[in-house]
Design a protein around this nucleic acid. Structure first.
Length: 359
DNA sequence: AAACATTCCAACCGCGTCCGG
DNA sequence: TCCGGACGCGGTTGGAATGTT
């Protein structure tokens, strides 16, 4: 086991952080940014290791963190992303503004896992528990949960539209829960319907299909409209401090130091669609959009629509109550964020005007 | 009210990756 | 190319908070 600290230096504090320590760290970072984490404790007057300071900042002290319980939409998104990405908590958290990987991980382990198991779903594989224990009991469970096989997962309401090939990474398994599950099968309570976030209304309508987990990376080769949001678990942390517009980082991937320099001014958050290229959402290489939800036509129209709406959206709205709060649950409309380090993809999988993105 | 059990989450740990010297 | 420091990530743990008996 590696030494926890280097050399016979003075003993470093461990365990819970005191309010005084928090204040020191916050003050230091507010003034100077974190720079090199290993130097932070010394400069901030803390008897902690840099790693501990970094963790404390990322998971607790950052001003852009979203607090409180996970919303149903967040839960659905987590489940869906986990089905594709596995335990890539940082990538999952990158899709959840204001949430940290640690938070998502804890939420998963303490709540979602149990919930899925109660539904007869293996949280590790997102397949029926029945598959692990074959036999009549398993078959019954499979029937009860009505989870589709991978081959059936990628659905589109467009007749004749070819399914995308299966993701190349085996972990990437995505499927949906049908609402047509028998009433006594656990779906009637409504919770299962929303488990994957796909079955709000009647028949399965549309689902975002990620071609592969890497597709979550921003700015695919074809160059797509991007909306940049601060991530709770990324190195872009400081972009979100002090009122810096997330959009400011749309086309730049600055260093932490650069971020620090940009974080001094106040003001409202705003979103902007980058204008790198005009691009139809249907060209998104990483996303297949079901079309039935597009009442107004093309995916490109959706992008335009979002672009206009986002221009007026304040970050604070987005973070603190924009996540569909108060509105009808519309899980198909989701902002699918790219890797927070650079940019964020904005995607809609069902219909216009849906979801927390637009308030 | 006390003892015990369970849950939850902040923090720690170790490993992998990146990058500069 | 190698080495070491810094960082990021996922898994695990400790203990406070909460629930149950």
């Amino acid at each position: 086991m590696a030494r926890r600290t280097s050399g016979p230096k003075k003993k470093l504090r461990r365990g819970l952080w005191s309010p005084e320590e928090d204040e020191k760290l916050m003050n230091h970072i507010a003034k100077y940014g974190h720079g090199c984490w290993s130097s932070v404790p010394k400069l901030a007057g803390l008897e902690r290791c840099g790693k501990s300071c970094r963790l404390r900042w990322i998971n607790y002290l950052r001003p852009d963190l979203k607090r409180g319980a996970f919303s149903q939409e967040e839960e659905d998104l987590i489940i869906h992303l986990h089905s594709m990405l596995g335990n890539k908590w940082s990538q999952i958290a990158a899709q959840l503004p204001g949430r940290t990987d640690n938070e998502v991980k804890n939420f998963w382990n303490s709540y979602v896992k149990k919930k899925l198991r109660q539904r007869g779903i293996d949280p590790a594989t997102h397949k029926p528990l029945a598959e692990a224990s074959s036999g009549r009991r398993g078959a019954a469970a499979a029937s009860r949960t009505a989870v589709f096989s991978d081959a059936e997962l990628i659905l589109s309401s467009s007749a004749g539209q070819q399914h995308m090939p299966p993701p190349p990474v085996t972990k990437a398994e995505s499927y949906v829960y049908s609402r047509s599950i028998s009433a006594d099968g656990g779906a009637s309570d409504g919770s299962l319907q929303s488990l994957s976030g796909y079955n709000q209304a009647g028949d399965f309508a549309a689902a975002a299909y990620l071609q592969d987990p890497d597709a979550l990376q921003p700015c695919g080769p074809s160059g797509v409209p991007a909306v940049v949001l601060p991530s709770a678990s990324s190195s872009s942390t400081l972009n979100s401090m002090g009122g810096l517009s997330p959009a400011a980082t749309t086309t730049t991937t600055g260093t932490d130091e650069q971020c620090n320099n940009n974080s001094s001014s106040g003001g409202n958050w705003s979103f902007e669609l980058s204008t790198q290229q005009s691009c139809s959402a249907s060209h998104l290489p990483w996303l297949e959009l079901g079309t039935s939800g597009y009442a107004n036509g093309t995916a490109a129209a959706a992008v335009d629509h979002y672009g206009a709406a986002l221009d007026e959206l304040k970050w604070s709205d987005y973070v603190f109550d924009g996540y569909g709060g108060g509105g009808q649950y519309q899980p198909q409309g989701q902002c699918i964020y790219g890797d927070s380090k650079d940019a964020v993809q904005f995607a809609d999988a069902s219909g216009l005007g849906s979801s927390w993105c637009l308030n």
